[in-house]
Design a protein around this nucleic acid. Structure first.
Lengths: 155, 155
DNA sequence: TGACATCGCGTGTTATAACACCTATAGTTC
DNA sequence: GAACTATAGGTGTTATAACACGCGATGTCA
C-alpha cells in the first residue's frame, strides 16, 4: 500500500506500523511547514524559535515573563532560554531586568521595536499559513486540530 | 474558544486564524513526539536525524546511496549531509567509498554494526510509537495520515 | 540562627546546524 | 578539444543547540 509519504521520501518498503506512518507523517508535515516559516522569517532576521518567543512576550504584555516561563511556553522546549532571550536583547527586541521582591527572577519584556516587528510580521505569517493550509477548508482543519490534540494525549 | 493547545502553551489570546491553530498544533505535536524519540535514542548515541539517515541506508540495501540521495530522503532537509554521514562513519555504522564509473559519487552503505543497532532499535521504536499514538486507534490514525498528506500538498 | 534544600539564572564547553565558498568530475556546445 | 555549465562532494566559519555545572537568592527545619 504505497502512500504519498512513500513517494515524498522515495521509500519502497512499507511502514512497520500504522503508528509509525502517522509519526513520520506528522514529523514530515511539521518540517515542511516550519521550513516555509523559516524562509519567510529569515529576511527579518528571526528564526522560528525566536519568533515564537517574541510572540509569547507580546502575549504577556507589559508585565513580561521570567525566563523559565518563556521556556515552558515555547512550542519546542529549548534547554538554553537564557541565550535565546539574550539574542533578542541584542537585537533590541526585548529588555531584561531584575525587579520585584524576589531578586532571583529576571523579567523579560518586549520592546516597542519588538512589537513593531511582530505587527509587521502578523500579516505576512497569516498569509503564509493561509497559503500552506488554507486549501484544507474549515471542516478538515478542525478535524486535524482535534486529532492532533488527541495524539498528544498519549505522551 | 479555549482549546487544549491554549492550555499546553499557557496562552490566553485566541488564535489569529484556524490555519494558525492548525500550524501550531502540527508543530507542537511533532515537537512532543520527536522529544520522546530523542529520549529513547539518546542512550544508543543517536539523534533522530542520524537514526533517520541510518534507516534510509538500511532501506537502500547493499548498493548504498550517494550523499545527496540520502539528504533528499531525510524527513527534515539538512544542508550538511556530508558531516552527518561522516559522524555515522566515525561510529562505525556506515562506510563511504568512491566507486563506479562516475567518480563524483560517494556511495554510503550501512555496516553490519549499523544493521545490528537498527535491528535492536526496531522493537524499541515500535513500542514507543505504539505508546505515543496507539490510543488513537486505526480509524483515527488513518484519518490523521490522510489529512496531513493533504496539508502538505499546499507547499 | 545555622545548615540544608530548592529555585531561578547564568556560564563554559562541546557538538551540531546553517551558510557560503571551493574542488573535482562529467557532460555540452561551439 | 577548449570553454562552459552542471553536478557531486568537501571545507571553513559562524551561530545555535545541548548539556553539565556553578552562583546567588529564597524557603525550610532542626
Amino acid at each position: 500500500m504505497p502512500t504519498t509519504l512513500h513517494a515524498e521520501l522515495r521509500q519502497r518498503k512499507p511502514f512497520a506500523s500504522l503508528e509509525q506512518e502517522a509519526m513520520l507523517s506528522i514529523a514530515r508535515t511539521a518540517a515542511v511547514l516550519e521550513h516555509g516559516a523559516a524562509e519567510v522569517l529569515k529576511p527579518h532576521g528571526l528564526t522560528p524559535t525566536q519568533f515564537n518567543a517574541l510572540r509569547i512576550l507580546r502575549g504577556a504584555g507589559a508585565e513580561g515573563l521570567c525566563r523559565n516561563e518563556v521556556r515552558d511556553r515555547l512550542i519546542a522546549r529549548v534547554p538554553d532560554a537564557t541565550r535565546l532571550l539574550e539574542r533578542l536583547c541584542e537585537m533590541g527586541l526585548v529588555v531584561r531586568e531584575r525587579e520585584g521582591q524576589d531578586r532571583r527572577f529576571v523579567r523579560a519584556r518586549i520592546t516597542r521595536a519588538g512589537l513593531e516587528l511582530l505587527d509587521a510580521l502578523d500579516g505576512v505569517m497569516l498569509g503564509l499559513h493561509r497559503r500552506q493550509l488554507g486549501h484544507l477548508g474549515e471542516r478538515k482543519l478542525r478535524a486535524l486540530v482535534e486529532l492532533l490534540a488527541e495524539a498528544r494525549d498519549g505522551s
